[in-house]
Design a protein around this nucleic acid. Sequence first.
DNA 1: CGTCTGATGACATGCCGTGCCATCACCGTA
DNA 2: TACGGTGATGGCACGGCATGTCATCAGACG
Lengths: 235, 235
Amino acid sequence: MSRWQPNAGERLESAALELFAEQGFAETTVPQITARAGLTTRTFFRHFADKREVLFASDQDVAALARQMIAEAPPSLSPMQIIAGGLDRVAAAQFSGGVDLFKRRKAVIESDDGLREREMHKMSALSEALRSGFEARGTDTLEAALIAQVTVTVFGVSIGRWLASDGATPLPDLLRETLAALRGLMADPRWEPAPGGGVGPQGAGPGGTARPQGAGPGGTVRPQEAGPGGGAGQG
Amino acid sequence: MSRWQPNAGERLESAALELFAEQGFAETTVPQITARAGLTTRTFFRHFADKREVLFASDQDVAALARQMIAEAPPSLSPMQIIAGGLDRVAAAQFSGGVDLFKRRKAVIESDDGLREREMHKMSALSEALRSGFEARGTDTLEAALIAQVTVTVFGVSIGRWLASDGATPLPDLLRETLAALRGLMADPRWEPAPGGGVGPQGAGPGGTARPQGAGPGGTVRPQEAGPGGGAGQG
DNA sequence: CGTCTGATGACATGCCGTGCCATCACCGTA
DNA sequence: TACGGTGATGGCACGGCATGTCATCAGACG
């Protein structure tokens, strides 16, 4: 017999998810989690960097898998080919389990701002893993950043649709659909900049009035004060 | 004479940015910030929800402006037209100030994980504002989510490039370039799914070997354990 | 049998964030 | 002048988070 029961980390994850679902994230204290798992508070923070992280332990696996797939891909493949081929494999490796667990977890995450924040951070970490992987292969900096972001977008939106459908539609199908929809969207000719310069539709699109938003926002949004706005992108 | 000096919020923002740059974010305590601003700790949390938020006060202006632009746009315009026309206006309204402030702020944000996390959250909030705005106009759910995400991507990447170039290239030009690059990327025929089904390049693209990543990741990444991976998208 | 290792327990501590009430300039009203 | 309302700030207490540090002890190893 061991001195301690095994799988301390997993026990903490289970206890935390249960308690978060029962009482809410903010109302659950770390001592409560560790009590249910039969451990102490200090041990919790040896397994997870903070209280939120207990819900995102496996997210790093996705990033690691993505990193590995890019590193192992033959140099002849373009980034898009790697992504297109990799989405399915990530879906199969990480999302083969039941949908219920994911839905419960999603409900908890969406109930708390701090958890949504952490989730965005994980997506951003995945994007960064993809970006640096591509750049290491010699992909152009801008292209690498964009492909990485597009991948995360397709991934995230597809998972959202997958869970919204209770897993009825296979995730690979949704990934395909979402990617196709995005390609169609970007191919729309109405994105084209007008001849006079400027991104905007100076010519007014089919059926549109000229200078659409020209009325000016002026309103409440203190347009001139202009503090620092959105921050860094993929730098 | 007022009982208190005016602009408490701005004084706190300045003091915080200074201290963060001098000693780092984690090493700076809220009492230190309020001392430099001539206020008390309690007052800090009346102006900002938490210690991180003091760096992101103006980010909500961007989301508000985006919301407003979508709401005021004539119904005849497509989402892409609104976005294309709106990027320039946001750039002009929120980023007309000197680049130095933005660069200092970016340096601080990138020095701390928690701050990067908050920044991603703000970008996600912007995306959500765009998405809901489009959906309120009747845009298809999937299309709205994708356009919102694409917009945030173009925005973020462009700002990153803008700051990386010390503001040498005008932001509107970079926005145009980035959007064009993304359109070119998505139009690449190598995204096309192979005829046999599956996203992957079964036929192997031009010059590629068949079954590229087939070697299998197997390695360290506990492929079957499959805990909850990436969470919600825009679901 | 002795030593080392690694996970856990136990304790102390500092900062974060919030609830609650007091203070006091300013403003409108009479 | 007198009075009360308003709104921003000060001051205090407190629970929870997160970390540093040392002690404990099963199991592996020789």
